[in-house]
């Protein structure tokens, strides 16, 4: 009897037995929920990335492609006089600013963890510079770190007795511009402070108490407990921080007019970063889309290799016993 019923159903629905139908429906529901993001990453991430990859082997200028060649890469590595300086600047900035931010953020978090009244207010004040829009801090710090007698820090130093003719150059010198940009980053160290604070919270007090009983000093407690217990957080922030810093465009605001060269290149190209170069090539009037694409892909390849290296050497990351 039951065999006959099943046969009938199979005949009626063909391929779609009730069970398969339910499975398909479940699959479809889940898929439909995710459909927007599937379309989103295809249209707005993967397809454009592939497009620039192809453009980098052409002479595309926004209108038409007339030839396919390796010329853009050849030009980049052998002819473009600025490119090595640009790669160097970008790497220097990323690999100094991110660790520097994490170290300073650690010390700031120590201060923000003092057991005194009113500490929450101080934490707020420390974090406040982080939420100021980038464009605002850009114009603000080109005034604070102004390289002439109108720069705020120079003004203060003059008031404190520095001779009137002398001024710190800050962004107006090839030698001090990078240092000034790194110095500017110090003001947003509240971001990593917050992350350190929550990392501290996740470390059980008993560990520190036990270490204290065993006679460990503050340095030993940092190296043997705090750092090992915070490795997932350090790891995550190193990766995302460096990927972000490699795409830094802050000098575009500081040096909007391009005092000695292209907009955002800083004094004597001292702040010329990859992302700014790409912007200038593509949108700076020349519409060198193919060349911009080639530089963008070199940047992307570097980020990809870096991420793989960090992930494959991440055995030192402590994820706790659960994972």
């Amino acid at each position: 009897m039951s065999v006959i019923v099943q046969n009938e159903q199979n005949e009626k629905k063909g391929f779609l037995t009730p069970r398969r139908r339910r499975a398909l429906k479940g699959w479809l529901t889940g898929f439909l929920f995710a459909l927007p993001v599937i379309l989103g990453i295809l249209i707005f991430s993967y397809y454009p990335a592939i497009q620039t990859f192809f453009w980098s082997f052409t002479d595309f200028n926004g209108l038409e492609i007339t030839e396919w060649s390796f010329y853009q890469y050849e030009y980049m590595f052998t002819i473009d006089p600025d490119i090595w300086r640009i790669f160097g600047n970008t790497l220097l900035y990323a690999f100094v600013s991110v660790p520097l931010g994490l170290v300073l953020g650690y010390f700031l978090a120590l201060a923000a963890n003092f057991k005194v009244k009113g500490v929450p207010v101080y934490r707020l004040l420390f974090y406040l510079p982080v939420i100021i829009p980038g464009i605002v801090s850009g114009i603000l710090f080109s005034t604070i770190l102004g390289g002439n007698e109108f720069g705020v820090i120079n003004e203060i130093l003059h008031a404190l007795g520095m001779s009137a003719g002398k001024n710190f150059k800050f962004f107006l010198s090839g030698e001090t511009a990078m240092g000034s940009l790194l110095f500017m980053g110090v003001w947003t160290v509240g971001g990593s402070m917050i992350i350190w604070l929550s990392a501290f919270k996740n470390i059980p007090d008993t560990l520190y108490e036990a270490a204290k009983l065993d006679g460990a000093n503050a340095w030993q407690r940092l190296v043997k407990i705090t750092l090992p217990m915070s490795t997932p957080m350090i790891f995550y922030n190193l990766i995302t921080g460096i990927i972000g810093a490699l795409q830094c465009t802050t000098p575009l605001v500081i040096d909007a007019a391009g005092i000695t060269g292209a907009p955002g290149s800083g004094f004597d190209n001292s702040l010329y970063f990859v992302a700014i170069k790409i912007y200038n090539e593509a949108f700076g009037g020349g519409a060198y889309y193919a060349y911009a694409s080639a530089i963008a892909w070199v940047l992307f390849a570097f980020i990809g290799i870096l991420t793989i290296i960090i992930f494959s050497t991440s055995k030192w990351v402590f994820y706790g016993e659960e994972d």
């Binding site: 454009p48 795409q247 593509a282 889309y289 911009a292 963008a296």
Partner: peptide, 9 residues
């Protein structure tokens, strides 16, 4: 994926 790679297309 860096923003500058997708902004152009």
């Amino acid at each position: 994926i860096p923003a500058s790679i997708v902004q152009l297309p």
